[in-house]
Design a protein around this nucleic acid. Sequence first.
DNA 1: TTGTATGCGTTATCAT
DNA 2: ATGATAACGCATACAA
Lengths: 334, 334
Amino acid sequence: MTITDIARLSGVGVSTVSRVLNNHPDVKAETREKVLNIIKEYSYVPNNSARILKQTNTKNVGILVKGVFNPFFSAMLKDISIRVEDAGYTMILHHHDNSNDLDTLIGFIKEKKLQGVICLGGNFLDIKEESLEGVEAAVVLLSVSIQSQKNYDTFSTISIANDEAAYEATHYLIRNGHKNIALLLGEKHDFGIGKLRYKGYKKALEDHKIPLKEENVIYGEYDVATAYGVTKDFLSQHKEVTALFAISDMMAVGAAKAAIDLGFSIGGTISIMGFDGMDVAKYYNPTIATVKQPREEMSRMSVELLLGLMNGSAKNQHIVLDVELLEGKSTRTI
Amino acid sequence: MTITDIARLSGVGVSTVSRVLNNHPDVKAETREKVLNIIKEYSYVPNNSARILKQTNTKNVGILVKGVFNPFFSAMLKDISIRVEDAGYTMILHHHDNSNDLDTLIGFIKEKKLQGVICLGGNFLDIKEESLEGVEAAVVLLSVSIQSQKNYDTFSTISIANDEAAYEATHYLIRNGHKNIALLLGEKHDFGIGKLRYKGYKKALEDHKIPLKEENVIYGEYDVATAYGVTKDFLSQHKEVTALFAISDMMAVGAAKAAIDLGFSIGGTISIMGFDGMDVAKYYNPTIATVKQPREEMSRMSVELLLGLMNGSAKNQHIVLDVELLEGKSTRTI
DNA sequence: TTGTATGCGTTATCAT
DNA sequence: ATGATAACGCATACAA
């Protein structure tokens, strides 16, 4: 069933059908009605690929998400999608788990003829100034990790200082008298955000002359159940540890439960700190201290910047936002 | 930059470039190399719309998600995507929030030329046998709510008996001596799953001659923070309530925290029961009793059924799976 | 107000 | 092994 079929069945030309489809004004009401009826009767749906192929000026912006299953991203997605649609753009959400984030991004832009893209997550470690030179779309990288600190001019970034944030969290625990602080990371071979947070943890220890013990670093794969398991194993053998810093709130929850099940008291015999500022930290029992990423602000700024880039009123820039340490009942001073 | 440009730059014809792109065997290694270099040099990416437009036999299955921000769906998505890709199909994820789920589904199938679709969520209340008659793709509705109990032959469904599951949860609380049981629903005007769970709650009360009090039904919009707020308001005025049944685990968490902040003891002065069987219920402190939906099984069956429907080895069917009541420390007998 | 004809970028058929 | 060319379904410039 194509536009030609509908045209034939309605006894009109294809362009008339096309006009009806696209709400063009210059179609007689009667004709429009007739065509609409045929469309409904045969439940015809235009082929969007053909449409995109033909169209030049699509008001489309894309959101490219790496790992949609991450609850922190899911939450940001919501904010972003609302704002994008408010601005009159159609949002095209694309999830992927490819290794090459950059190629995926470029392919996405070309395939969908996008005017702009916000990337949520991913490691653009080898991105270069010229990587996006031929790309006419505005690109905002949000919460991604890139290697260099150069002021690239072909794309924008919005992020937090992951190393400093982790430093702050660790420092908070140290200030409260903790010296034996375990670190619960995600994946072992993460050269992006995980590495930066590790760096911050390490520096905080160094600055306070606390020796770093490699065995105090464990990996929970950003998963509650895994975090629970490794923490339980770890704590049962390392009773001397008085605090644990998890680099995601979901892992902090798993760790907290593990500690509880081992007889620790959260905020008593062990202090737990999370990362992200998710609702679950706030509503856990007890409330888990966490490093809150400015999620709403990141979402808002990313859309505003993208819109600005698209209409030419903004230039590419690299924004680093502040985090906020939220205290909870899960830590104590010793 | 199109395939024609690449052909010109490489000094070959478009068909040769197309062959290289699609890994056809009959291209001289040397030629392939040459073309590949040009492609890389100009960072050319094929236009997928044109591709889809042209292709007939795309091995594509779609996943149509309504409300990707729901953590229960996110978890299922993960299982499904792995299985679909294992089967050699490309998975196309599409999220939407349109009111007409059926139209969105049909549009999605036609646009992407899909061989099959799994729908996650949505209310297909007015779906009819003939709604999908002209659609050649296999359709499996997963965790959706449809009005009729007819054995439709043009699509399949996999679901749980939401009313019975809610009945079971309520009955469990009643059996444990509770008579004043609050119900924490999602949205007020939900005529799908929410309505069914309300029905189960109501019937359980009726069967035990417990009068239904409308003021005991509150709405948390499937959101932790909202659930926290309404529960706090509610419990501070209804100290006589001894149990609360939330129809999602995230809402149960919010409710639990509200109760704690009001001085209740979870599993002591108040019993809390959730729904879904999410990790968060298990790792909450204390562990929250919940009705576990067979998530892995639902995911597995949906993919298996879809594959069967596509290769003709299966017929459309309507499967209702059992739930499992997981006890926790959050309820007690009175 | 409506219809005809052309091209969007690709794949596939048929030659060569 | 490779190239020319005809669709795919649509939007649109231009003609009527």
